[in-house]
Write a protein that binds this DNA or RNA. Structure first.
Length: 473
RNA sequence: GACCCCAUAGUCUAGCCUGGUCAGGACACAAGAUUUUCAUUCUUGUAGCGCGGGUUCAAAUCCCGCUGGGGUCGCCA
């Protein structure tokens, strides 16, 4: 590709960044990276009443967490108003736009009337040829759309899509407060920023002919368009709060890895043979926008969990530790000022990465390692720390005491000797030991657990448990 | 309602362009194996081309219609 590509992700800061938005960002990002082009972040904050600074921060934090880095921006449209005013002025001067003084109430009444007569609720053109200038209001600026003809949009994924301009409307370009509207700024900005490919959700497909007309009126060349399908909830309706967490950062807090979320999202619409797991470089190298599926995809949390599990299993512990640390703090397992290095946090991970689907789950299973005191599950204590197991625990403590260095081999030998002498099964010893060391009936392999805790802690917990049995009766 | 988009198992998808392979893979689900707990892992299984026409020796694949789903129709983006 010899013309450098330039794409953008243009969220509106009217709420958190949701999963669907992330996928749009991801496809743009992959397209830019694949082609060695540029990826622009542009904040569409022209709706003064709904845009918030918190949303902007959330969007940026989410993109950073996901590693979707941008080359330009974030631009803010409210800082570019001079440009929009100038362009609106230009259209007005050229007779390609006009001022409309109809009030929102009047427009709403017209809409309702049209709907009742089963007509299309488009603007009736009252102000289109109006000569007088009412006082007290600047009115809005409307686009003077052609009255007839066909607009054909070329979509990279769908081919040619045609619209009859009679279905279109004299859309508002500038509100009465002087701020520009979406369909106008998106055209001005995409053209001004030299965007070569507009990759966005297919909820914008119907807007495209209106925008195409604006490109024409403003004398701009048309970019390429690619409208990707949307993500739906399990009930096949648009993904929303009703479908559980849709906030991207919520997935971070639930213990998902950014790479896992990215991997899940890229497979919604894009594939490469039978491959399910992709490293970023593989995605970038193989990504192709025109092989993206056209149909909407249902968000499937189970598949996401499975992918997350795969990433937890294969991510190097030291790396995983960086993501686990904040969750350990959040879950109250480590104090905020724990001062532990990634190396120290990573210690129990090799034992846990085959048995956790999320980092939150892993944090819970790492509790026994990071907490000084064992937190007992009462039912487990009652069942396994009793007079039947006590002599076995005492024997094991004595055995371990004699070992200079603990290895899984000599631990296994010690366990076997004790259970054989007592004529019981291994579980009769392993389970009580497990409870004594971790407080629970579930844990990594018992020899691994002992090795992880070390001789000193193991003996302390074993003895504490044995003593506890005595004093309880 | 009008316009636009879409259609392979419960879900994500390969195959469609350039008709002819038992329609391939994955998640989930079920059964079994392994096992000191919990998991992991392995094996096997259940399940699909929305419907109706047409073209053709032959249609998941090409054409038309229907149905179904989604989207848009704001001084929201």
């Amino acid at each position: 590709m010899n013309t450098p590509v330039k794409v953008r992700f243009a969220p509106s800061p009217t709420g958190y960044l949701h999963i669907g938005g992330v996928r749009t960002a991801l496809f743009n990002w992959l397209f830019a990276r694949h082609h060695g082009g540029r990826f622009v972040l542009r904040i569409e904050d022209t709706d003064l009443s709904r845009s918030t600074e918190e949303s902007i921060h959330e969007i940026i934090e989410a993109l950073k967490w996901l590693g979707l880095d941008w080359d330009e921006g974030p631009y803010r449209q409210m800082e570019r108003q001079d440009l929009y005013h100038q362009k609106a002025r230009q259209l007005l001067d050229e007779g390609k736009a006009y001022r409309c003084y109809c009030t929102p109430e009047e427009l709403e009444a017209k809409r309702q009337a049209a709907l009742e007569k089963k007509q299309n609720p488009k603007y009736d053109g009252t102000c289109r040829y109006r000569k007088d200038v009412p006082e007290g209001t600047p009115g809005v600026v409307r686009f003077k759309a052609p009255l007839e003809g066909t607009v054909t949009v070329h979509d990279l994924l769908r081919g040619k899509v045609s619209f009859d301009v009679r279905e279109l409307d004299d859309i508002i370009l500038q509100r009465s407060d002087g701020t520009p509207t979406y369909n106008f700024v998106v055209v001005v900005d995409d053209a001004d920023m030299g965007i070569t490919h507009v990759i966005r959700g297919d909820d914008h497909l119907s807007n495209t002919p209106k925008q195409a007309l604006l490109y024409q009126a403003l004398g701009y060349p048309l970019p390429e368009f690619a409208h990707i399908s949307m993500i739906l909830g399990a009930d096949k309706t648009r993904l929303s709060k009703r479908h559980g967490a849709t906030s991207t950062l919520a997935y971070r807090d639930m213990g998902y890895l950014p790479d896992a979320l990215i991997n899940y999202l890229v497979r919604l619409g894009w594939s490469l043979g039978d491959q399910e797991i992709f490293r970023r470089e593989e995605m970038i190298r193989n990504f192709s926008i025109n092989s993206v599926t056209l149909s909407a995809a249902v968000f499937n949390p189970e598949k996401l969990i499975w992918i997350n599990e795969q990433y937890i299993q294969t991510t190097p512990p030291i790396e995983l530790a960086k993501h686990l640390a904040p969750i350990l703090v959040k879950e109250g397992i480590l104090p905020e000022n724990h001062g532990l290095s990634a190396d120290e946090i990573a210690k129990p991970i090799p034992l846990l990465n085959q048995r956790a689907k999320t980092l939150v789950e892993m944090a819970g299973k790492a509790r026994f390692y990071f907490k000084k005191e064992v937190e007992f599950d009462e039912a487990a204590r009652k069942k396994f720390l009793n007079h039947e197991s006590q002599p076995l625990l005492t024997q094991l403590a004595a055995q371990i005491e004699t070992l200079d260095e603990l290895t899984s081999e000599n631990l296994e030998t010690s366990f076997k000797e004790i259970v054989e002498a007592a004529g019981v099964k291994l579980g009769k010893l392993a389970q009580p030991v497990r409870v004594a060391l971790t407080g629970k009936t579930e844990s990594p392999g018992i020899y691994d657990t002992i090795l992880l805790l070390g001789k000193e802690t193991t003996l302390a917990r074993l003895n504490q448990a044995a003593v506890g049995i005595n004093s309880s009766e």
